[in-house]
Simulated scan of single mutants.
Amino acid sequence: MESRISIITGASSGIGRAIAENLLMKGYGVVGNARNKVGLAALEAWSKNTPGTFIPVEGDVTKEETLTKLLSVCHDTFGRGPCIGVVNAGRGLPGSITGSDASKWEDMVNLNVLGAFRQLRILANAMTSNDEASGELASRDIVVIGSTIGTNVSPTNHVYGATKFAVHGATEALRRELGPKGVRVSLIQPGFVRTNFQEASGYDIEAFEKAVQEIGPLVEAKDVARTVEFIVDQPPHVHLHDIMLRSTRQSYP
């Protein structure tokens, strides 16, 4: 039986996949969600050679039924709910308030903000239920993947950064609510990370590569995954709740 059970959203690629791979290599059970069926299938195939168990759940995390399914799959497969939840699914959008594509604002806010809020609520309720919270103190972790531009205003990504400001505020509020109940809520704020995020979100790849030349080598997805691993491996009485993760040469944001 897997020692710990986790739910990871946005698990089909980038940071989410790297986190899933790390936890699978530790022998943890991982219920991974994404809308990318092909990416989930690739991760499932990869997981066959790990000591952990990966269960893919395709679906949109802005929908309550998808989140409910993630919990039910945990119980059906592993016999208990998650003790690790990674709120990772999100999308970017280049541009300022006046210059970005306003037709894409609603979808991004639905995923980055409302979707994150729903994930936080359902994970919090699951980890504080009588069934999951009973017995001796055990590590229960909700880890949110934020961004440095959720603390420092970005010169070029105003709307995307604003969604991260909202999530950071909600994360800190939940930390204060759940800490006394034994649940650790942690925020990781990565700076520039080399994944497929920039291309998928429509960023100027030429400008991104120029930035890489100036501040690289960049943080990679596996670096964020190691940080998640470090957080959840702390003894139950130790809580790392806010970590900013940049490449050494990135001065701002």
Rank of each mutant, 00 (worst) to 15 (best):
T163V: 05
I188W: 03
T195G: 06
I205S: 10
M25G: 10
I5D: 03
P190A: 06
E229G: 04
A170W: 05
T98P: 00
F78N: 08
V183D: 02
G32S: 03
A89P: 05
E21T: 13
N157D: 15
P51I: 12
V87G: 09
V232T: 12
V159D: 02
G81C: 13
E44T: 02
S103A: 14
P236Q: 10
G179V: 11
V238D: 04
M1V: 07
C74K: 03
M127L: 06
I122S: 02
T98G: 08
G10V: 05
C74M: 09
P180N: 04
A133Q: 01
N110E: 15
G52N: 06
P155T: 08
T148S: 11
D60M: 03
G32V: 00
C83Y: 11
I145R: 00
R35S: 07
A162N: 09
A102C: 04
V144W: 09
R4W: 01
V212P: 08
V73D: 02
V30N: 02
G27E: 00
S201N: 01
R35Q: 04
R246W: 07
T151R: 15
A162I: 07
P253L: 06
V183F: 05
K181S: 10
G202D: 09
L40T: 05
L40A: 03
V219D: 00
E199D: 11
V219G: 00
M1R: 04
H241Q: 11
T128S: 13
L187A: 08
N49P: 06
Y203W: 10
E65A: 14
N22A: 14
L24S: 00
P180E: 07
K210L: 06
A41G: 05
M25S: 13
V232D: 05
F192W: 14
S129W: 01
A170D: 08
N130D: 15
V30L: 01
A20H: 01
T148G: 03
L114E: 14
R175F: 12
L71M: 13
V143M: 10
L40N: 03
D204K: 11
S134G: 09
A124D: 13
H168P: 03
M25N: 13
G182F: 06
G95L: 08
K37N: 00
E206Q: 11
I55E: 00
N125P: 07
G161V: 06
H237V: 02
K181Q: 15
N157K: 10
M127D: 03
G39D: 01
A138R: 15
Y252Q: 12
V144S: 10
E2N: 03
E65T: 14
E177F: 10
F230E: 04
N130C: 13
P190R: 03
K222W: 12
E2I: 03
C74N: 08
M1E: 05
K222C: 13
S186L: 00
D242N: 15
V143L: 10
F208W: 07
E21K: 13
R91N: 13
G95K: 09
A89M: 05
N196S: 15
R184S: 01
L137Y: 10
T62S: 14
G29M: 05
F78Q: 09
A11I: 04
R226H: 14
S247W: 01
Q234P: 04
V185M: 07
P82S: 07
